[in-house]
Design a protein around this nucleic acid. Structure first.
Lengths: 291, 291
DNA sequence: CCAATAGTGTCTGTTAGACAATATTCT
DNA sequence: AGAATATTGTCTAACAGACACTATTGG
């Protein structure tokens, strides 16, 4: 049989096939309200969730996403979903992880490729709430709850409980995820399990926790932070973005040294702030990460 | 309609579904032969490929892998394939990336989750060639060919050509992959394209190039190198593993300082080496990566 | 004037790179 | 003895953390 004959006679339906979806983790960092005109407005990390209109998990909140159609690539499907929710293009988009447990979805076997998108809140303001479907931004915070380390024959098992909290003006959601890290011999394995989830559909709490961890790691060794910034920004704003994602305060002097080569000065200044005006910067596209 | 009724009446076949496979990138670092009894044997990075017995790409070399069955998770499928090829368990296994272009496979729409496995060559020696199917280890090297950087409206496009070479006693394969890195505004995108491929099936050259890059990155900031080591090893052997993966020489003094906390001394020494014997070490499971 | 932030200077301790120097084996 | 590797010591430059200090605005 020639290759051509083979392909003509190939019957793809012989094998059972799963459904494949993309799940979108759309993050932004937005300003909070601040009463004192002199103080800077604090920033918060936010994620976009949609309210499920249908079974299963009807009424609960889920990651935006949908089935991948036969004539689009995974990336194209992710882009399509992203447009649908934010109508912004040229956005940071990165494949995160593909979730393939057997009973993730009560309907049928579903394998989900998750994508993380980062958008800057300024270009977003437009579409924020006026969405047709029930998409809403939630502030997102995670909290270390407790840790448990056990010795085994040839290594250790560390269990860590992390709580996620999501909230906006109308709603508050939460979940607890247990992360089990198994060191056996020279290899390490990590597993995630949802311990408790409150109005968050499917295994999406687990996916969000994973994404948050990845975001936190990547902001330290890549330039993704700039994807969260508007065209022009001050170094203090940039620092705030790092701080809200890392969940800790940074020293301004050291921070400025670290980002010095990644940004370019402009000769614009922020006005009417009630204190010394700060210079606006932009991303330096000639900056190269590697040596 | 209740959720229960909904689920009972749910018809999964309404949507066209792709086939899903796992592709395994099984790496090891093995000793080369060395004539001079006094000299250390150099090491080489190797990858396991299988010769395709059927159409399409019959006779060409491909990554081990196969279809994911409905009653196993992605990880379980990856484990199963790994066992099939190496019959070693408790191995380092990590999901790499999921490839979802529309025409990756001439038979039908196939989405492939790729997994990287690291095995130590010592426990492997057993299964090396006696495999039933046509699986073979290939030495693997990549070579930077050329780079091309173009300015655009709001950023740059960098194209990089990388050549991969695979060889063993019987066979030699090669491929060229073009990596396009687009910096536009504050976002970066990376794409990979196979420019030329020689007896390597599907888009697997691209996947291997990606895996190699990931391996190179991860060895710098994680402890995956130990997954490539036998139970006991000398610090020079460990350094050789770093060197062969990073493709550059390291200074012994600095290297030893860096890994000092990650290993534990034993009181065994390598014997009969024609020079000063080196101490054997083992991985220190109490070492924690993070602070 | 003063609250509040912007931005800089400098000290200190840690670490990576470089390389020299010493130690130890087997044939 | 001599080849070859193992292992340690030390100098230096770079850099991150800490913190003090100066600069600049709007009300």
């Amino acid at each position: 049989m020639t290759e051509k004959q083979f392909l003509q006679s190939y019957d793809a339906s012989r094998f059972a096939r799963p459904s494949v979806t993309v799940d979108m983790l759309i993050f932004t960092v937005a300003d909070e309200q601040e009463a004192n005109y002199r103080k800077l407005s604090p920033k918060s990390l936010q994620i976009l969730l949609v309210k499920r209109a249908d079974h299963p998990f009807m009424g609960q909140w889920a990651l935006p996403g949908g089935f991948v159609s036969p004539e689009e690539s995974l990336e194209e499907a992710a882009m399509r979903e992203l447009q649908m929710e934010t109508n912004i293009d040229n956005i940071y988009l990165e494949q995160l992880y593909t979730w393939g447990d057997v009973n993730r979805d009560p309907r049928t076997r579903v394998i989900s490729a998750s994508y993380m998108a980062l958008v800057d809140s300024e270009s977003l303001e437009v579409k924020a709430g006026e969405d047709a479907d029930d998409a809403r931004w939630f502030r997102l915070e995670d909290k270390w709850l407790r840790e448990n380390k056990i010795a085994t024959q040839d290594g250790t098992i560390t269990e860590k409980w992390v709580q996620l909290r999501f909230w906006n003006e109308a709603e508050e959601l939460s979940a607890t995820v247990k992360i089990t890290r198994t060191v056996a011999g020279r290899t390490v394995r990590e597993e995630r399990e949802i311990v408790e989830t409150n109005h968050i559909a499917f295994d999406h709490a687990k996916i969000i926790q994973y994404a948050l961890e990845r975001l936190r790691n990547k902001i330290e060794y890549t330039d993704i932070a700039f994807a969260l910034m508007p065209e022009l920004f001050t170094l203090t704003e940039l620092q705030q973005v790092y701080e809200v994602i890392l969940g800790k305060e940074l020293l301004a002097a050291a921070f400025r040294r670290k980002v010095a080569d990644k940004v370019m000065e402009t000769n614009h200044y922020r006005k009417h702030a009630g204190h010394r005006p700060s210079k606006y910067y932009r991303f330096n596209p000639d900056w190269t990460d590697n040596a």
